[in-house]
């Protein structure tokens, strides 16, 4: 790149803009961190300051016990991992079907998959509950596995796009060799959409990590997930809400998705930039 005064001004302007936007996005996070370091008295002072007087980690310690983090982390991980595995698996299969088998019903099923996104899910709560009850699955984490096997519309869509980019010749030659469809799928096609699989898994994990209604309905207080627990744990004996500890608790709650994101961000960015999602 040539370094003329014009390009310098241009890039200075660009950086100012980028950093300005970054600041706006980070304000709530700064707010969360700041509050999590403050004492309750500092938070509720009549003219509160922007930053804590000192970096005070007491809230993090207390939040740990109040949230009973170990137990609920286990619950949340158990449900999320089961859901992620099942949902990714099932979505990959459906996405593959929609991408590669051009039968007459294909369009109909594709529309059906997308339409299923539009069901106002509050309508399904009671009947879903009755069904789960009949199956004897209330208060069991394994419900998430079964629920995941239904796949998720957006992930199916994603897989459909990824599978569509693979040349047909690979499949054809395998078929000529007499390989069965399931074998072709698992040994040839699925390995080719690695980044799609990772992206889907991350999304599935994120959804189940933040799901509030399902654990609130189906799990008892000791088996429920952090998404529910975060809402009920942070009151003291006076029944006051403890904002500092709550924000520290929120930090614990969002840590796992954030870590996962940083570990896999390369795949997400790359995969999405490969044009995985297309209109």
């Amino acid at each position: 790149m040539k370094t003329t005064p014009k390009t310098i001004i241009q890039s200075a302007f660009s950086y100012a803009l980028l950093i300005g936007i970054l600041f706006v996005f980070f304000l709530p996070i700064i707010s969360m961190l700041s509050v999590s370091f403050k004492t309750e008295a500092e938070i509720f002072r009549s003219s509160p300051s922007l930053f804590p007087a000192s970096i005070n980690l007491d809230n993090y310690g207390r939040a740990l016990t109040r949230l009973n983090l170990g137990a609920y982390l286990y619950n949340t991980l158990a449900t999320s991992i089961m859901y992620t595995l099942a949902c990714t698996f099932s979505s990959a299969m459906a996405g593959y079907a929609l991408a590669r088998f051009n039968v007459r019903e294909n369009g109909f099923f594709f529309t059906l998959v997308l339409s299923s996104m539009m069901i106002p899910y509050i309508i399904t709560l009671i009947p879903f509950y009755l069904l789960v009850k009949d199956l004897g699955l209330t208060n069991r984490h394994v419900l998430w596995l079964l629920y995941g096997l239904g796949g998720a519309p957006f992930l199916i869509y994603l897989f459909r796009q990824f599978f569509a980019t693979i040349p047909a010749s690979l499949e054809e030659s395998a078929r000529m060799d007499g390989a069965k469809p399931l074998r072709i799928f698992f040994s040839i096609m699925l390995p080719l959409v690695k980044s799609g699989t990772i992206i889907s898994a991350i999304f599935a994990f994120q959804w189940s990590w933040q799901n509030y209604l399902m654990p609130a309905l189906f799990l008892s207080s000791l088996k429920t997930t952090l998404a529910v627990q975060i809402n009920v744990a942070f009151q003291d004996i006076q029944q006051n809400i403890l904002l500092g500890e709550l924000m520290a608790g929120v930090m614990y709650y969002i840590a796992i998705p954030l870590i996962l994101f940083f570990v896999f961000q390369r795949y997400i960015m790359q995969g999405m930039l490969e044009g995985g999602v297309k209109g």
């Binding site: 509950y129 009755l130 609130a216 309905l217 008892s220 207080s221 529910v228």
Partner: peptide, 19 residues
């Protein structure tokens, strides 16, 4: 004993399920 949070949706659904 197991405890469940108070949840209106759950109570109504439980009632319909008979449990």
């Amino acid at each position: 004993l197991i405890r469940e949070e108070v949840n209106q949706a759950k109570w109504i659904a439980d009632h319909l399920a008979g449990t």
